Amino acid sequence: MKTMQWAARAEHLGGIPRKMMFLAVGAFSKAVSNLFNNTTVHNADTLLRLVRSRPPGVPLLTISNHMSTLDDPVMWGFKGFPVTDAKLGRWVLAAEDICFKNMALSYFFRLGKCIPITRGGGIYQEHMNEALDRLSDGAWLHTFPEGKVCQEDAPIRRLKWGTASLISRAPVTPIVLPIVHHGFEKVMPEKYMFGRRPPFPLCNRDIRIVIGEPMEFNIPKLKKMAVDMSNDVSFSLASWPRTCGLDEAAQRCLYTNISNQIRTAMERLRKICKSCQEMKD
């Protein structure tokens, strides 16, 4: 009951609560991003184009690093982005233990098009199917494949396989767009006062968002490669269901390959983001 899937439906109360939610949260995001802090976005036109006018039925999967609890929705609050438009707004995977702790929070985040994910629940947990349904609808989904907030200035960590599984299982392979940002860890530091986050976002910080180029994955070819690779490696198997026509060993090879490609692209963007920040400093 706490996950309130009914509240996430577009027709819930005529869509009015969702529209109000996006207007309110979008205004907050605009204020934090543009009024109280300085945000610079590189290659914003690519994201705007894919959000507004990608081919019908083709889903969009954006992927980013995770620097703070404010990354989403504030990262969409930059100038020119339709963050208050509920119809164009992203779906996002959200930690169940944080965003769905009680009925009120569950309703709030469901209106905001959040899908609960249990950390440690595996890539075939119940609500991953809901995320897959949104991709099947041709919607926009955002994920944080590192799995948790990390505020260290360090390379992109090993990515969880859930995102790769969605890419390979979607009926129509999504357009994958990597994004890397820096500065949200200063707007909402994890250990600000007495080891806690500040009660409100901090001001006068510099936020930098670097949007990459769309990534395309030839899933049939990658599946064949995964089958060939799985014959030469051994895994500690956990009885995964046979999916995409692949056994568990081949699935693991497939997800590792896709995740490594995404991580490489994100690390490239992170270095660009860091060099831009150093030039400004």
Score class of each variant (00 low, 15 high):
230 S>Y: 11
203 C>S: 11
217 F>H: 06
227 V>P: 09
227 V>N: 10
210 V>C: 12
216 E>T: 10
221 K>G: 00
209 I>M: 09
199 P>L: 03
224 K>M: 12
227 V>H: 10
228 D>A: 13
230 S>W: 11
199 P>K: 06
217 F>R: 05
210 V>T: 13
206 D>G: 07
229 M>T: 11
212 G>I: 03
228 D>C: 02
225 M>T: 12
218 N>R: 06
229 M>Q: 14
216 E>P: 05
225 M>I: 11
225 M>A: 09
230 S>P: 11
210 V>S: 07
219 I>H: 08
209 I>S: 13
218 N>D: 12
208 R>W: 01
227 V>C: 09
204 N>G: 04
223 K>T: 02
224 K>V: 05
225 M>Q: 15
202 L>Y: 04
228 D>V: 01
228 D>N: 11
222 L>D: 05
224 K>H: 13
229 M>W: 12
203 C>V: 04
207 I>Q: 11
207 I>R: 09
217 F>W: 09
209 I>G: 12
209 I>E: 14
214 P>Q: 12
214 P>W: 15
229 M>N: 14
215 M>Q: 15
208 R>G: 01
206 D>I: 08
225 M>N: 11
215 M>H: 12
204 N>W: 08
211 I>A: 08
200 F>L: 14
202 L>W: 08
213 E>P: 06
214 P>E: 12
201 P>T: 02
208 R>H: 10
216 E>W: 07
228 D>Q: 15
222 L>M: 14
222 L>T: 03
199 P>G: 00
210 V>N: 07
221 K>S: 05
200 F>E: 01
215 M>K: 12
221 K>I: 01
201 P>I: 03
216 E>Y: 09
203 C>Y: 13
224 K>S: 14
202 L>A: 07
223 K>N: 07
216 E>D: 13
216 E>Q: 15
225 M>W: 13
225 M>S: 04
228 D>L: 05
226 A>Q: 11
205 R>G: 06
204 N>Q: 03
223 K>M: 12
226 A>C: 03
229 M>Y: 11
225 M>E: 12
211 I>F: 10
213 E>L: 07
226 A>Y: 04
209 I>P: 13
219 I>G: 08
201 P>W: 09
214 P>G: 05
216 E>R: 14
199 P>W: 05
220 P>I: 01
219 I>Y: 06
205 R>L: 01
213 E>V: 05
203 C>D: 05
201 P>D: 09
210 V>G: 05
202 L>H: 04
218 N>M: 01
228 D>G: 03
226 A>K: 03
229 M>L: 09
227 V>L: 10
205 R>K: 14
224 K>Q: 14
213 E>A: 06
211 I>T: 10
218 N>E: 04
212 G>D: 01
209 I>N: 12
207 I>F: 09
220 P>W: 00
200 F>N: 01
222 L>G: 00
210 V>W: 10
222 L>R: 13
210 V>K: 05
210 V>R: 08
220 P>S: 04
221 K>P: 00
219 I>M: 03
211 I>D: 01
229 M>K: 14
216 E>F: 08
224 K>Y: 08
219 I>N: 06
214 P>S: 06
229 M>H: 10
230 S>Q: 10
204 N>V: 00
222 L>S: 03
217 F>L: 01
205 R>F: 03
209 I>F: 06
212 G>L: 05
211 I>N: 09
206 D>A: 14
203 C>M: 15
